[in-house]
Design a protein around this nucleic acid. Structure first.
Lengths: 153, 153
DNA sequence: CTCCGTGCAAAAGGTTTGCACTGGT
DNA sequence: ACCAGTGCAAACCTTTTGCACGGAG
């Protein structure tokens, strides 16, 4: 349900910005909007290529760039050396698991209210923020508890 | 002063982790520890090469990786597609200016106290966090105010 | 019909790896 | 003297660019 809404919203945004709704853009949007794993351009290409034979990597790069420009996507701030994309544009945060390296979404609520007015006082105009947490994800935590148990036997 | 402290601390950390203090590592540390601009590997190479003829880019990559491993450096979470390094390992945050693209350090204090206990409740163990602000930096803000003035004349 | 968007090929940029040698400890 | 660390070259991966063609508006 929510996915469908997102799709129509995304298409509306494209129209409004004068971006033609080409097959490639529609398929890429379709493949991206319900993902929560922050794929790289290559990931997107791999996901979309089967449904769109002849698709070029170049196009994927250009489509992603265009979608970021019109704010249908964002780039995720992370520590690696490749661009990763996020179909969510509402405020939310990320957890990078130091054990498995995975990147998870976290609801904005976890941050409590964060007040950037101190920055405004310094002459800095904050438009948004995103908190990059590092730690251990639920899966890895469970795994490490289990192995501890084993060791104790 | 503080820089000197950092240098000795960094060297101590290397020793403790069994990292040999080679010329290359010392010079790279020396060049890096007082920078606040979050240089890329290439930036580091450019800064260090004059003082260390024959230095290889490969070494720069490997030294940076090693220093991250022993926590003398960190990688900066950001939206680009190249690794950027940060000599500060205390908790602090970043501002990315949407106008000029520059990446600034911000003191931890701007965040107020952020309490990750909600995450702990979910089974997530948070070891640290870093807030990625987007907005307009002081310089760009001033510039835009000035041009507004001009326009009004 | 007009351009914007695409595909292809090539280049540019960033990072990693294998191997032989050198310098710290 | 040993082994970690380095340099060089090459490979590899990611992203960008130029040009010609085709399809969306």
């Amino acid at each position: 349900m929510l996915l469908k809404e997102r799709l129509t919203r995304a298409r509306a945004l494209c129209r409004a910005s004068g971006l033609a709704l080409t097959v490639q853009r529609r398929v890429i949007l379709d493949a991206l909007l319900d993902r929560t794993d922050h794929p790289t351009a290559e990931d997107v290409f791999a996901a979309v290529a089967p449904r769109l034979p002849g698709l070029s990597r170049t196009t994927v790069y250009r489509v992603l760039e265009a979608l970021v420009r019109v704010k249908v996507l964002r780039k995720v701030p992370h520590e690696g050396a490749v661009a990763r994309f996020d179909p969510r544009t509402d405020r939310h945060h990320h957890l990078v698991c130091t054990r498995c390296g995975a990147l998870f979404d976290l609801p904005d609520a976890v941050a409590g209210q964060l007040d950037p007015s101190g920055l405004t006082g310094l002459g800095i105009q904050v438009s948004d923020y995103c908190i990059h947490f590092t730690g251990t994800c639920v899966g890895c935590r469970r795994a490490s508890l289990k192995s501890h148990k084993k060791e104790r036997r």
